Every structure is written in structure tokens, then in C-alpha cells.
Amino acid sequence: MTIKVILADDHPIFRDGLVASIEETGEFEVAGVGETAADAIRLAEEHRPDLALLDLSMPGGGISAAKTIVRAGTAKHVAMLTVSEEDGDVMEALNAGVAGYLLKGVSADELRRILKRVASGEAHITPSLAAQVLKLMQAAKSAEPNPIDTLSKREEDILRRVARGLSNREIATELKLQEKTVKHYMTEILSKLHARNRVEAAIIAHEAWRDQV
């Protein structure tokens, strides 16, 4: 099944190359292209894509566009493609509901692989930024008891596999569960950990269990 994408970036040469890279294998269809936050919001409303891929620093702001799109539900998922490695930008994007935060140095193959996962409901943050996000999360939650201790044995089993990078389907196969059952457990895990997505849950797991995951 083709994944419908809209994208917005204010650099025409980069944008054209991005469209070519995304559509190269036929797995994606770029349904609309823009260069501003207003364009992104309009395109999402018009095409109702599986994924909105936004530039952070385009006119009007990618995060502003992401907030509007997520709030309106006009794209199933939103990902940010940017050069920014600033802590504030990463956290603001996650707070806006962005499911993917990718740096523009990523290869075309890796980009398509990540976008497929984000479009299927997985979350992704560039690994080099994970430590920064963890520090910010620790600072915000340092005064709170560790919620990971509230997980059941089954929830812990699932979270350890999330921390290893397994998808819901892979976890279901490994634990001999139905995929919808794993999704239900993930909802409970995210709630207990006060995590917005799988990325945050995996980071919390790595910090709590260190080399045990």
C-alpha cells in the first residue's frame, strides 16, 4: 500500500531532491508540496495524508504547523526534518505531537525506512539526540518517583523489546501475542511512564535498566 505524504520546506533544490528520494521506490506518493507553515496546514487539510513531513525553520515555523495539524487530525502522523540539534527544538517538537524528529544528513534509504515506521505508528528520534532528550526528561522528572517500577511483568517484557527497537508486530511474534494486545499494553505503558511516545518510553527503559535491555 502506497504511503501518502505531504511535505513543506522552503529550500527548492533540497525539496525537489527530497521528493525524488521519497518516491524513488514507489512506496510513497508525495501528494502535495509547499514551502511555508500555511502551505503545510492547507495541504494536510486537502490531502489528509498518512504523513506530513515538515521543515522546522520554514516561514511560519514547522512546529507551529505541526501543532495545528496534530490538533486538527488532518495527517495521521507528523515528522520533522531539520538541521537543528537544539534541545529546545527537539522537546518543543515532541510536545507538539511530532512522531519523528530526523536530521537532514540522513541517507535516502534510511529516510524511507524511518518514514515507513513513523507512518505505521512508530516513533523515531535521531539517535544522536536521544541523550540530550534524556537529560531534559531527567531534569523535569528528577523529583518524581520512578514510574517504571509500577509496570507489570508483561508490560516490562514488552517495554524491554521496545527499547531494543522492535515493532509491535515483532513484539507480538516474539511473545506469542496478538498485535492489538501489544498495542493495548503499549497504551498502558505510556500512561504509567508519562511518556508521549515509544521514543520516550525506550529512553526511560534504557536509563532504568542500563545494560539489561
Results as ranks from 00 to 15, higher is better:
80 M>A: 03
81 L>H: 03
81 L>C: 08
82 T>P: 07
83 V>I: 15
83 V>A: 15
83 V>K: 11
84 S>W: 08
84 S>T: 04
85 E>N: 00
86 E>K: 15
86 E>R: 15
86 E>V: 12
86 E>D: 15
86 E>P: 01
87 D>I: 01
87 D>N: 03
88 G>R: 13
88 G>L: 12
90 V>M: 06
90 V>P: 02
90 V>R: 02
91 M>Y: 11
92 E>G: 10
92 E>M: 12
92 E>K: 13
92 E>C: 07
93 A>D: 00
93 A>W: 01
95 N>P: 13
95 N>E: 15
96 A>L: 06
96 A>K: 12
97 G>L: 00
98 V>L: 11
101 Y>Q: 11
101 Y>D: 10
102 L>T: 01
104 K>V: 10
104 K>C: 10
105 G>I: 11
105 G>A: 12
105 G>Y: 12
106 V>Q: 09
107 S>N: 04
108 A>P: 10
109 D>W: 08
109 D>M: 07
109 D>F: 11
109 D>H: 07
109 D>G: 09
109 D>C: 02
110 E>K: 00
110 E>S: 04
110 E>M: 06
111 L>M: 12
111 L>A: 02
112 R>F: 14
113 R>H: 15
113 R>K: 15
114 I>L: 09
114 I>Y: 05
116 K>T: 02
116 K>Q: 06
116 K>G: 07
117 R>K: 15
117 R>N: 13
118 V>E: 10
118 V>D: 11
118 V>I: 15
119 A>G: 02
119 A>F: 01
119 A>I: 08
119 A>Q: 00
120 S>T: 01
122 E>S: 09
123 A>F: 05
123 A>Q: 00
124 H>Q: 09
124 H>E: 07
127 P>H: 06
128 S>E: 04
128 S>N: 11
129 L>F: 07
129 L>P: 08
130 A>E: 11
130 A>M: 14
130 A>S: 13
136 L>K: 09
136 L>M: 10
136 L>I: 07
137 M>H: 08
137 M>T: 05
137 M>I: 06
138 Q>T: 12
138 Q>G: 12
138 Q>K: 15
139 A>M: 14
140 A>E: 15
140 A>S: 15
